[in-house]
Computed example of a mutant assay.
Amino acid sequence: MWNVLDDDAVFPTDEVRPSEVAPVLPLFGTVEDETVLGWQERALCAQTDPEAFFPEKGGSTREAKKVCTGCEVRAECLEYALEHDERFGIWGGLSERERRKLKKRVV
């Protein structure tokens, strides 16, 4: 086996100073994405059929809205949809049309 270190190499001690530690970066996305979108992991829709949240035109939204009613991250979901101008699907318990009306009232 080869020694790739110098014989005089200084080995790190068990004590590591915070200034010496390189930051840990996620492989995908950014650190902000992980904290901002963390609500999606707790969303009830992530545990149900996604097709219910994107019904065909004229299709029922009742089932999706029923799931949203009991979801703990409903407010975060709606806020995300409004901020990112989501144009399709049920987000935060509201349809596309309902979100447009809400945006008009706020503006």
Rank of each mutant, 00 (worst) to 15 (best):
E56L: 15
P50K: 03
T35C: 11
T30F: 09
V31A: 10
G58K: 10
E63S: 13
T35Q: 06
K57C: 10
F54G: 03
W39S: 00
C45R: 00
R62V: 04
D33W: 08
W39T: 02
V36W: 14
E32Q: 13
D33R: 02
P50I: 03
T30I: 06
G59M: 02
E56W: 15
E32F: 14
A52M: 14
F53P: 00
V31K: 11
C45D: 01
T48Y: 09
K57G: 12
L37H: 07
E32L: 11
P50R: 01
L44V: 00
E56Y: 15
G58F: 05
R62A: 12
K57H: 08
L37P: 04
V31Y: 01
T48G: 08
V36T: 07
S60F: 08
F53D: 02
R62K: 12
F54S: 03
P55F: 14
G58N: 06
F53A: 02
F54H: 02
P55A: 15
T35N: 07
R42V: 01
V31C: 05
P55D: 12
E63F: 10
L37G: 07
L37Y: 13
T61V: 12
A52T: 14
G58E: 08
T30N: 05
R42S: 15
D49V: 11
E41I: 02
P50T: 12
E32T: 07
T48N: 11
T61C: 12
S60G: 06
F54K: 08
K57N: 13
E41Y: 08
S60H: 03
G59R: 06
D49N: 10
A52G: 02
T30W: 06
K57F: 09
L44G: 00
D49C: 13
C45Q: 03
E34A: 07
D33L: 03
T48A: 13
Q40T: 03
T35A: 06
R42G: 13
T30S: 13
F53R: 03
A52C: 01
T30K: 06
G58D: 04
D33K: 01
K57Y: 14
C45S: 04
D49P: 01
P50Q: 00
G59N: 06
Q47E: 13
V36F: 15
E34C: 02
T61Q: 05
D33Y: 02
F54Q: 14
K57R: 14
G38W: 11
G38A: 14
E56I: 10
R62Y: 11
P55T: 13
G59L: 10
L44H: 05
D33V: 00
E32G: 15
